[in-house]
């Protein structure tokens, strides 16, 4: 990878912006377009940009294989666990109404949590795939 200083400076500015935007997309999906999946991709895009500009090793340093695996699994587990919690509370699988005494607010919590799960797994899978491709060079 070429280490272009201009690129490095620009991306140092860009990456936080992307991350911020990703967080916005993650948590604002209920109101406008967006949600966990798109946020996850954006989040990963920040890391990919980082990797392209500063070299893939630096990404691996921040997110070693084990950590990445942990994140990949945890997103799925969060989603699944939500389902089991609602099941445990006497509802159907993924019936968010039981998460709160007031139906819609339960829905709100549920949606937020599962979207978070989606975001985490999507971001970490995309990063992992990118690393796997990049490391083949």
């Amino acid at each position: 990878m070429t280490r272009n200083p201009v690129l490095q400076v620009i991306s140092k500015i860009m990456i936080p912006v992307i991350l911020l935007f990703a967080s916005y997309v993650q948590f604002h999906g209920d109101f406008g377009p967006g949600g966990g999946f798109q946020a996850g991709v954006l989040f990963a895009a920040a890391f990919i940009l980082f990797g392209v500009v500063f070299g893939i090793e630096s990404v691996v340093k921040v997110l070693p294989q084990g950590v990445l695996r942990f994140f990949i699994a945890s997103g799925v587990l969060i989603y699944g666990a939500t389902g089991f919690v609602t099941l445990y509370k006497g509802g159907d699988f993924l019936d968010y109404n039981v998460l709160s005494s007031h139906g819609p607010s339960g829905q709100h919590i549920g949606i937020l949590v599962v979207e978070l799960g989606v975001g985490i797994t999507v971001a970490s899978v995309v990063i992992a795939i990118f690393i796997a491709f990049a490391e083949r060079d």
């Binding site: 990949i72 699994a73 799925v76 587990l77 699944g80 666990a81 099941l87």
Partner: peptide, 17 residues
């Protein structure tokens, strides 16, 4: 019936770890 699908789904990421 729910467990039939969801349990292996939830075990898969554990095995992955």
């Amino acid at each position: 019936a729910i467990f039939q699908i969801t349990i292996p789904l939830i075990v898969a990421p554990l095995v992955f770890l």
